[in-house]
Structures are given as structure tokens and as C-alpha cells.
Design a protein around this nucleic acid. Structure first.
Lengths: 217, 217
DNA sequence: CGTTCCATTGAGATGTGTCAATTCAAGTGG
DNA sequence: CCACTTGAATTGACACATCTCAATGGAACG
């Protein structure tokens, strides 16, 4: 957690955190409608969250990488409104929410941090809303690639060459597009010398053009 | 606030709340990029929130009615990522966030409530994501009407006959549709004996059919 | 009672979806 | 190590929901 605490406070926090979770591909971390108990921090790997509507339609709501927190969807109602699944082998920390709440009453820094985490999820979700509502297929894909690139850079990994841990179908679902459209747009970007794509491997050749396409201008 | 506090705690909360805000149509409560200072509770009227992308596209992100809280979009970064505007004459309460945080450290109930409020916004935004991504124009409109109907009912107002405080353009923007499509779909629902629409006045004639159409089944 | 904004309606254009066929990648078991 | 199977990704042809453009009608307001 990127948060400055006094050693004594750090100890109390670490006592609460569960370091248990080792995940393999397809492992479910929690299921939609499960009782909400904890937030989770990704330590290694990638987690996908998705919700299913009453009539069976699925929506991927997010991808989470090491250092990022997921599980906030359960805070509102006491039940998770998404399911969370591992996309590859990795591990997560469990942050039991009730204990975090108690702890945060005596550690203002922690309380503030928790509010921020929830707030950031709101901002992200609203960005996704805008993306889905007002942007073309190319712009959506470009925006996702930029987002991934930025996040890999934050983890001090290559921001121009990386592996997509999710399938085309996950990407399409997340962006409100079909697999076919994702494939076609990636193909087009490749012809435009913006990307080099080899299955899950992506190399960004022209990040400026990609940013322009993302409508980030 | 629907929250059980001891009288003494209630007093402390009320000392923090600003009852100031009287709003007229088009009044801005806060602007995108303003420094985040407070959440707001609608007392009367209706508030619309929307964000503008760097390249000028606008996305309506929410409508808020009496009893509902808005302004959570500022929590993540310390700046509002939306603007908030009054759609009609009304009033709001200001809830200075820093003071609320301090207060909530000593009132667990309040802390929990604040987390829940943020959590509910997350859930709502994700529902909107699904709506935009996976549902047809009819389903989107039906879902909005059901949502409005439900919320009016909560406020003990008629759930079958109400006034839309927002324009067709706002509705369309929120749902990722054009004004024309909104108009056509409303017309179609009227022909199908599901609604009676007269400008901003709506009467729901067949709520079951409407729910079916919303994909709520 | 004109002006202006908002809503409706029609006709035609288009981006993305649907359906179908093919190729490619990754296991799996003999 | 090689078929064989299975699921993922690509590519093409066509369909369609919604958008765009344009004209008209109606409500609100000074």
C-alpha cells in the first residue's frame, strides 16, 4: 500500500491483512451475490471482475494488476455485485473490511486512503461509461491499450511491449464490442504501423498516434 | 440521512452540515476540476452530473433526487471529475468532507455509512456500464424509467405518474443515445400502451411490460 | 406574438453486429 | 513426438439498430 504510516500503525495493519491467496487461472476469488467480507489487493497476476444481469448477459467491469485493489463492488450493499476471477497464476491479499474499518477509525491516514480507493473506482467506472457511450471502437481499444501501458509503467515494467493477460473476448466484452470487431481494429492498427500484435503479445510502435486515437489528444 | 445516531452524535453531525444551498435552474453546484471539498445531499429538486472529455464530448453520469448524495466523483483525486448542475429550482446541503472524515473517526455508524454511499455509487455506475454496453435503446429507456419510478416511490411520491425534470437530450446523453432515438422509443412505448407521454409528464400504464423490456424480467 | 429552444418525425447513411468459414495455438493421450 | 481435439483468433459477406441530416411542430418566455 502506498501510504505513510508510523511503524506501530504498520504492524496493526499487517496483523489484519491475510496473505493467503494463491490463485491459478480461472480461480474464483469471490462470486456475485456472495456476502461481502473483504477487499483484495493483487500481488501477482491479473484479476478480472464481471457481473451477470438477471437475463444472463455478462459485463466485464475491470481488470486489476499488481498493486491495485478490487472488491469495492461489495461495499454498497454488503454483497458483491461482481464476480472476480484470476486470468493467470498469481496471488492476492485479503483485506477484511470490517477490521479495516475499525482500524481506520484510529488511523486517519488509513481511513482517508480507503475513501480514496473507493473514489478512484468511481472515477474509473465513470470513465468507462464515457468510453462506452461516446467513443468509437478504435478509440475504445486505443484507450484500453494506453491505460494498460500506463499501468505497466507504474509497475516499472515495459510500457511499450507487454502481454495481454485477457482474451479478445474479455477485451471486447469490457469495451462493449464483439470479438470480431476487436480483432479487426487490432488488425487495422497493425496496418497503420501503430502496433505490432502477435496473439497476446503487444508492441506499441507509435504511442503518440495511439494517444491521439484514444481521444486523449 | 437514513442513519441511526445517538442524539449527542446527531448534534455533532448537524453542526458540520451546511444548509445553505438554494439552487435555481442551471445553477452550477461545482465544476469539473474544482478542488473537492464536500459531498452534497439533494433536499429539493434534481441535480445532474456530467463530465467533459478533453476533446469536448460530454457524458451525463447521473441524476440525483431528494435524499440522494452526489459529489463522490471528487473523492478519488481531490478534484471533482464531474460538474453538477441544478435541473430545476431546489436546494442542497453541503457536507464538508474533511470534517465528515474527522467526525466519522469517532462515530463508527457514520464512517460505515460514508463507505456505503461511495460503494453504492460504484454499483450504480457499473449498472450504467452494463446498460450502455449490453442493452438496446428500448431496454435502456425502460431501465431508466423503472429506476425513476422506484426512486419516486421511495420518496412516497407517485411511482406511476411523474414529471421528467431532465430534457430528452439529457436522457439520451445519459443512456448513450441520440435525442431522436429517445423520442422514437418513447413514441413506440406509447403506441404499445406501455406509457402515456406528454412532453415532460409520464404515466406508466403497464409497469410489468416495462420491467420486462428493461431486461429486469 | 415573435423568438428561441426543445421535441417529433422522416429518409437515408453507417459502424458495428451476426453468421459462417478458416486458421492458429495449446494441450492431451497414444 | 505425433496426431487429435478443443478453444481462441482471424477474416469475409451481409444485416440491422442507431445515427445523421433535415424539416416540421410545439412549448416556454419575455
Amino acid at each position: 500500500m502506498p501510504i505513510a504510516l508510523r511503524p506501530e500503525e504498520m504492524v496493526r495493519l499487517e496483523q489484519v491483512v491475510q496473505r493467503s491467496g494463491l490463485n491459478y487461472r480461472q480461480d474464483i476469488v469471490y462470486r456475485q451475490d456472495d456476502t461481502f467480507g473483504a477487499l483484495y489487493a493483487v500481488r501477482l497476476g491479473c484479476i478480472k471482475t464481471y457481473r451477470t444481469t438477471e437475463d444472463g448477459r455478462e459485463q466485464v467491469t475491470g481488470f486489476y494488476f499488481p498493486g491495485e485493489i478490487f472488491g469495492m463492488d461489495g461495499v454498497g450493499s454488503g454483497r458483491y455485485t461482481n464476480s472476480a476471477v484470476a486470468l493467470e497464476t498469481g496471488s492476492t491479499c485479503e483485506l477484511p473490511f470490517e477490521q479495516m474499518e475499525k482500524l481506520s477509525a484510529t488511523i486517519p491516514q488509513l481511513q482517508h486512503h480507503l475513501f480514496r480507493i473507493l473514489g478512484k473506482e468511481i472515477t474509473q467506472d465513470q470513465q468507462l461509461v464515457t468510453l462506452l457511450s461516446k467513443h468509437t471502437a478504435e478509440e475504445r481499444l486505443a484507450a484500453l491499450l494506453i491505460s494498460l501501458s500506463t499501468r505497466f509503467a507504474e509497475r516499472k515494467q515495459s510500457s511499450l511491449r507487454f502481454r495481454l493477460p485477457m482474451s479478445r473476448s474479455d477485451i471486447g466484452n469490457y469495451l462493449g464490442l464483439t470479438v470480431e470487431t476487436v480483432s479487426r481494429v487490432l488488425g487495422k492498427m497493425q496496418k497503420g504501423e501503430i502496433l505490432r500484435v502477435d496473439n497476446k503479445e503487444v508492441e506499441i510502435l507509435d504511442i503518440d498516434k495511439l494517444k491521439t486515437q484514444a481521444g486523449i489528444k
